[in-house]
Amino acid sequence: MAAATHEPPPHVTEHHTTTGIDNRKMMMWIFLASECLFFGALISTYLIFQGESLVGPLPHEILNIPVTSASTFVLLMSSLTMVLAVYGAQHGRLGMMKLMLLATILLGLVFLGFQAYEFTSFVHEGLGLTTNQFGSSFYVLTGFHGTHVAVGVLYLTSMLLASQRRTGLGADRALHIDLAGLYWHFVDIVWIVIFTIIYLIPH
C-alpha cells in the first residue's frame, strides 16, 4: 500500500468528499428538502381550511392583490440581487458582492415592511389571528414565511459584516455566499407558491 504514504493531511481531505460536493452545500440542499415538507404542511392546512371560516372577513373581502404583487416583485428582485452577489463572490468582485448583499438585505426588509403593513391593515379591518380559520391559517403560513425572510436578512447581514472584517470570509467566501443564496432563493420560491395559492387563485 504505497498510496497511504501519499495521503494528504486530513484538513486538506476535509474538502475532498466522496461525491465531490462540499458537505455544507449538501446539507443545505437536504435541509431545503426538509423545508419543503414544513411549508407543505402549512400550505395543506391553509387549503383544508378554505371555506371553513364561520365568520368573516373572508379572503376575497380583504386580500389586497396590487399591494402584494408589489411585495412579490420586491422579493423576486432580491433573488436577482442575491444571485449577483454570489456571482461577485465567485468571480472575486468583492465590491459587487457587498453591494448586492446590501441590496438583497434592503429588499428583504422592504418585503418585511410590506408584510407588516399588510398584517396591521388586516387587523384594522377585523381579521385577527383568532377571528376565523382563514385568519389563523393565513397568519401562521405567511408569518412563518416572514420569519424565514427575517432569518435570511439576519443571515445575509452576518455575511456582510463578516466580509467587512480584515479576514473577510476566508477561503470559502464563495461557498458561504452561495449557501446563503440557496437559502434566500428557497424563501423566494416558497413565496412564489404562497402567492399563487393565497392571492392569485380567486375564492
Partner: peptide, 13 residues
Amino acid sequence: LFSFGLILGTAII
C-alpha cells in the same frame, strides 16, 4: 436529494 422533499411535500399537499 432535493426532489425527495419537493415530491413528498407536493404529494402530501
